[in-house]
Amino acid sequence: MSPTARRSGRRRPRVGVVKFASCDGCQLTLLDLEDDLLAIAERFDIVEFPEATSRRSAGPFDVLLVEGSISTEEQLEELLRLRRESTTLVTIGACATAGGIQALRNWSEHGPWAATVYPRPELIESLAMATPVADHVTVDAELRGCPIDPQQLLELLTALVVGRRPQLPDESVCAECKRRGATCVVVSQGTACLGPVTRTGCGALCPVYGRGCYGCFGPRNDANVVSLIANTAGLDDSVASTRLAGFTAWAEPFRSVIDDHGGPPGAKP
């Protein structure tokens, strides 16, 4: 749709917000755009958003925001159906883009894991792996983060209305850390920090709050994790797998480095 067509307001884009295995936090971010929510609702026709409205729609969608990782057979079927119904499919958050924290089970045998939580694991309907949406269908854009950043969500929606590319830079957390004037926790305190290899978007939240980044926006394109472990203070081989095995552990190159370090903590039964 061209920007001029959009502005002439022939039809509001039909938007769906759906979720798979997740905590709801990313879709909640839409409701947390308090200042803009009503304006967004005027620009977009939110036809499916079970958490916020009783009206339901099975599609078609101009824009579908997908939260959560794919964890059951039914979710996979539903995802394939939704992809067919959607023009632009955007994954929102670490679960949908990287599998989320629940992807840590991908390193382990599924049965014993389920048995530690459920008395009758045989009744659990669950795939052995929790996987990102892009493993199964084409994804047109992704919003990173656990949770996503409200400003990035607003930027995405604005870009969709205006017809421009969303400004979601692939730069390190460090860049934002420096812009905000925070003192580097690696250099000044020897704190383990994934900032140099993690994509920005959070506003360098953790370093600003005096702790090391734990990678919830996932690896950036040039993530040099090997050098990070070899050359930065605080993050040596002994803590590498623990620190990387977080909310985006299943994303490469984090995944391979975790493999090289014997899997995430607690991977074995």
Binding site: E171, S172, C174, A175, K178, R179, C184, G195, P196, V197, D222, N224, S227, L228, A230, N231, T232
Partner: peptide
């Protein structure tokens, strides 16, 4: 480049 993290810290300080 093998050691460089391309993290931008050098340029921003």
């Amino acid at each position: 480049a093998e050691r460089c993290l391309s993290c931008t810290n050098c340029t921003l300080v």
